[in-house]
């Protein structure tokens, strides 16, 4: 990775509270922790954390505990806390704070693990600030004066290189490099700075929603719609096999190779540049 010019571009990471996927114990959110890790590799101790919510949240210290192993060994983390309750809307608070902070690169996880968890917040923030937004970053390769080059995660393990204009908001995928451990000492030394002067508004959209414990999703049944008992029986007893497969016998290896290459080209798995 080229040394990023992070001094010209203060980096901010949005953090939220999460919980362990199995035990449910409160802690760092997985994607947010990856965003903090990415910010620490980019900006070192100059990374600023922001959280909108409750100051007593235990997960915040876990994020501050990640400020170790940096160039400046005496560095300590700093987290700006925008006080609000769970019924309030975080978007106007964060938008006001980000607009005043002068930062140009904001990192966040794709989706929160608690609360609504819709993944809409980065998009609403970017829309309100007029910034560019890119989702699903795996690595940030270079931060220039007005452009960021990054790799975006695609399905099936593929990657795509994007160039994004600053100021921008980048959400980090779960396939980004894993976060460093949270250490006790830096977590104690880190400072939580409560920002005054911002008034939270109640979230009007979510007023009429009904919250309920998550139900297991029903498994899809294979229903055969046929009036014929014989068809229904055959469908129930059928093995899952691709019918109509082509079987080619009596081939020399060269002929078989030709057929295989022709098939792969036809299905666009091999590109045509190869001879």
């Amino acid at each position: 990775m080229t040394p990023p010019d992070a001094a010209a571009c203060p980096v901010v990471a949005l953090v939220s509270s999460g919980h362990h996927p199995v035990s449910g114990r409160p802690g760092r959110a997985r994607e947010d922790a990856r965003a903090v890790e990415m910010g620490l590799t980019l900006a070192g101790a100059r990374l600023q954390l922001v959280h909108a919510g409750n100051a007593e949240e235990p997960a915040l210290r876990d994020y501050l505990g990640m400020y170790h192993g940096l160039d400046d060994s005496a560095a300590q983390g700093e987290l700006a806390l925008l006080p609000m309750t769970t019924a309030d809307d975080a978007v106007p608070l964060l938008a006001t704070w980000l607009a005043n902070s002068g930062c140009r690169l904001v990192l966040a996880g794709q989706r929160a693990e608690c609360g609504e968890g819709s993944g809409l917040l980065p998009y609403l923030l970017a829309e309100r600030l007029g910034w560019t937004i890119v989702s699903g970053a795996a690595t940030i390769e270079r931060v220039g004066a007005d452009r960021v080059t990054l790799l975006q995660v695609l399905p099936q393990g593929q990657r795509r290189r994007l160039e994004v204009s600053l100021p921008c908001l980048i959400t980090v995928d779960a396939l980004a490099p894993p976060p460093r451990q949270s250490a006790f000492g830096p977590a104690r030394r880190g400072r939580i700075h409560v920002v005054d002067g911002l008034t939270a508004e109640e979230d009007s959209a979510s007023g009429e929603w009904r919250w309920q414990p998550a139900r297991a999703r029903p498994k899809r049944l294979k229903v055969v719609k046929s009036g014929n008992a014989r068809d229904r029986f055959r469908a129930a007893a059928a093995k899952s096999s691709a019918a109509g497969g082509q079987v080619l016998t009596d081939l020399t290896p060269e002929q078989a190779a030709d057929r295989l290459i022709a098939y792969l080209r036809e299905e666009k798995i091999l590109n045509d540049e190869m001879p």
Partner: peptide, 8 residues
Amino acid sequence: AGGRQDIQ
């Protein structure tokens, strides 16, 4: 939603 909840 997050936190093992559904929103209706």
